[in-house]
Amino acid sequence: MSEPVRSRGGFSRREFLKGSGAAAAATAVVGAPLVAPAEEATGLIRGAEEVTLQVNGKAHRVRIEPRTTLLEVLRYQLGLTGAKPVSADGCCGGSTVLLEGKPISAATTLALDCVGKQITTVEGLGAQDNVVQAFVHQDAMQCGFCTPGFVVAVKAFLKKHPYATEEEVREGLNGNLCRCGTYVNVVRAALEVVKGGRNG
């Protein structure tokens, strides 16, 4: 895997290599160039463009329109379906991903807005991740459709609050909705990570 490419916010028209009729499917670009400073960035973008997105430490070329959401790109161009389309308004946490380390709703984020930023999806955490493992031990899932979003939210929450108490967990994780009713075990999973001291 290539080193994650870090950059400051913004993007450049140079990123938007005009589409050459390439397939919509994205390819990982190893060692993609750093995103250039954006003195030209006032340029208007109309229609589909090819850009690079940094997802889970890899650069991916994708073809997007201004209206394309991050969620649509992740799912249909990159095949990363861990983030789920649950609601149009992003109030349910189903599509939670980390953008520059912070949890946001991919359903309400435009993909163009993510160019040059580090995106981490649940797939980027991996099966061995301590939060993923704690969810399994505590059976913090039933149908599982909300679970990846919850895992990412818990990951972000514990990064900020590594010694969270039960009360803080109950107050801090209300952006995710579960219909099957797994909340009790989500609390236990978060606390297992805290007690294990394995978060981070």
Partner: peptide, 19 residues
């Protein structure tokens, strides 16, 4: 969503010009 043209200016002046 209806499609739209998109810009991400770096300065207030650019933003105001776009608006």
């Amino acid at each position: 969503m209806k499609n739209f043209e998109y810009a991400a200016p770096r300065t207030e002046e650019e933003a105001l010009a776009l608006l």
